[in-house]
Design a protein around this nucleic acid. Structure first.
Length: 594
RNA sequence: GGGGGUGUAGCUCAGUUGGUUAGAGCGAUCGCCUGUCACGCGAUAGGUCGAGGGUUCGAGUCCCUUCACUCCCGCCA
């Protein structure tokens, strides 16, 4: 028998009554009745109630023992009387009568309690993460994460994918996020970069003829944190396939995600076949390329209404005249909502830094009319036209905004969420997946006015390559796609451009000389010129998948050892200063800002 | 880089229009208690009210500066 335990803390049942057992674990909770002491012993698997009374010579030392001390307990399994059975825990029908005990790991006074459902400041949780991780909810989240990852691995293997590792020390890339840099001792003045994603490597794997690759890949981007974005590092299910079209990727990923979500969650899937929404359609209907499809509200463009002579809402008319657009959100049957409902939304819009949200309600007494502060500006005919365009019915309300297209997309997207929340239109028990497709290859940077890659420079443009009009780059679409679930972007992917000449052409549009491309992407470009297969892939974010499955809103709740918002590890004290010798070896010197 | 929120005992929080000695629960220490499972009861210790400056007879409370944490914007091919 093992020296520490014969059973773990969830093993023992009625059938074990009478046997002498050895348990090891943490003191989760003590209940001291003076002459009788209950101890809840906890390990990874569960809790077993142990009991000792004053007749035992160990009583007084156990009575004084600190919570979270690690002990080994030897005792006999006994039945609990009917009244004292605890159905909350799996071992609740029995308890262990303590004979002997031994402290395996003593515990100082706790900076935070482990046995408690209370919430604690992140600062203390992260500093004492090893204590925090003992707590039930987060302990279970981390176990869930492990199970999800091994499930995904098994699925991918069963689909015929091979798992490969790719380098962590690689080269800096000019596109995308800020790189984490690592100085090279052997090459003074030169730096490695940590990979933002194994993008080039996975393409090289395809060129190497491996056909189907995947990896649970760490990705490093030096960008500021958000609730759903760790600073520094995160994990992707990186995958790539050869001789595929967009739909082949979709089929694999849909199958994987549906299987995963069905296995690990009881929530319903809104679509078993993910709907495909084009980027441009998404921006109009939802104001964003990551729409929450649980939200039934749709945005409609009604710019034309404000060119009519029988509409006298002059503020909007002037803006439309200058090139602004007008869009609206219809809410069903809200005519009896109190004035405060509408005013709160308008007030909220102003707090978001917009000029507010105008609104009216469509009613019919003798004839159709608009009620509300701006109702009087719309004629009956104009209202009927709006109803036709938006599908609004009598009794519905319309929230509208007028602005430049970019700003309008922003506010309508936010307003769509806000109004749905206020009206409680979102079913939290649903996962609504969709594909966003047909991303533009390029976009214009509004500040510099330059043409840039809008997503991934390695994506394949759509259409017959011979016939692409490179004179109008903003019209070129790419085989580039995203998966969105409940308004969270899970991944993006693309069919890759495997034709070097086409690559040079596209890079030249974005302002890169051939020589620069050769320099920055030498490995890739070179490889593509030695017989590259058509290929494509995608990279779903593991952290966000686990977040959705665990029902958590913060990525730190499903990350074992996360950094704080300032990219510091409070437990390990990273980042930290290094000594002069280390700098010297790397040929570095510091020039700190005061 | 910018905006919002928070900061009071080891932990979670309360603290009135500025007014005696800053409170509670959990935890800690000590005592009582033989069937609890958030055990119960009693007592004790524990505070630079994030820090610095200012207004005031008097500041946890008002003002300024600053720091930390967090949420958001920018950023995230």
């Amino acid at each position: 028998m093992n020296k520490y335990r014969s059973h773990n803390c969830t093993n023992l049942r009625k059938e074990d009554v009478g046997s002498t057992v050895l348990l090891s674990g943490w003191i989760n909770k003590k209940r001291d009745h003076g002459n009788l002491l209950f101890i809840d012993l906890r390990d990874n698997y569960g809790i077993t109630q142990c009991i000792i009374d004053k007749d035992n010579s160990n009583f007084s030392s156990l009575e004084k023992i600190q919570l979270e001390t690690v002990v080994k307990i030897e005792g006999v399994v006994v039945n609990r009387s009917k009244e004292t059975i605890n159905i909350e825990i799996e071992t609740g029908e029995i308890e262990v009568k303590i004979k002997k005990f031994e402290v395996l790991g003593s515990c100082k006074e706790l900076p935070m309690p482990v046995f408690s459902d209370q919430e604690y400041s992140e600062e203390i949780r992260l500093k004492y993460r090893f204590l925090d991780l003992r707590r039930k909810k987060i302990h279970e989240n981390i176990i869930l994460r492990s199970k999800v990852i091994s499930f995904i691995r098994n699925e991918m293997n069963s689909y015929g994918f091979l798992e490969f590792q790719t380098p962590i020390l690689t080269s800096s890339s000019p596109e995308g996020a800020r790189d984490f840099l690592v100085p090279s001792r052997l090459n003074p003045g030169k730096f490695y970069a940590l990979p933002q994603a194994p993008q080039q490597f996975k393409q090289l794997i395809m060129v190497s003829g491996f056909d189907k690759y995947f990896q649970i890949a760490p990705c490093f981007r030096d960008e500021d944190a958000r609730a759903d974005r760790s600073p520094g590092e995160f994990y992707q299910l990186d995958l790539e396939m050869s001789f595929v079209e967009q739909n082949d990727i979709f089929n694999v990923v849909e199958k994987l995600l549906i299987n995963t979500f069905k296995k690990f969650s009881n929530k319903k899937l809104m679509y078993e076949k993910f709907p495909k929404i084009s980027y441009s359609e998404a921006l109009i209907k939802y104001g964003t390329d990551k729409p929450d499809l649980r939200n039934p509200l749709i945005i409609n463009d009604i710019t034309e209404i404000f060119t009519r002579n029988d509409v006298s809402f002059e503020i909007f008319k002037k803006l439309v005249n200058k090139g602004s657009k007008a869009r609206c959100i219809v809410t069903k049957n809200t005519k009896d909502k109190p004035r405060s409902f509408f005013d709160n939304i308008d007030k909220w819009a102003k707090e978001q830094g917009f000029s507010g949200l105008a609104y009216f309600t469509i009613e019919k007494e003798k004839e159709i009319q608009a009620k509300g502060p701006i109702g009087k500006f719309f004629s009956k005919d104009a209202l009927e036209e709006i109803m036709k365009k938006t599908g609004a019915k009598i009794g519905d309300s319309i929230f509208l905004s007028c602005n430049t297209q970019k700003e309008l997309e922003k506010i309508t997207a936010l307003a769509r969420d806000k109004i749905a929340k206020d009206l409680e239109l979102i079913d939290e028990n649903i996962f609504a997946f969709c594909w966003i497709i047909d991303y533009p290859m390029f976009e214009r940077n509004e500040q510099t006015n330059k043409i840039e890659f809008s997503h991934n420079p390695f994506s394949m443009p759509q259409g017959d390559i011979e016939k692409i009009n490179f004179e109008k780059p903003l019209n070129i679409l790419a085989y580039q796609y995203d998966i969105v679930c409940n308004g969270i972007e899970l991944s993006s992917g693309a069919i890759r451009n495997h034709i070097p000449e086409l690559m040079y052409k596209l890079f030249s549009i974005a302002g890169y000389e051939k020589q620069q491309v050769d320099e920055k992407f030498s490995g890739m470009i070179n490889a593509l010129s030695y017989g590259a297969p058509p290929h494509g892939g995608i990279a779903p974010g593991i952290d966000r998948i686990v977040m959705l499955l665990a029902g958590e809103k913060n990525i730190r709740e499903i990350t074992m050892f996360p950094m704080n918002q300032n990219a510091q590890d409070l437990m390990m004290n990273a980042p930290s200063k290094i000594d002069e010798n280390q700098l010297k070896e790397l040929s570095l010197s510091l020039k700190l800002k005061k």
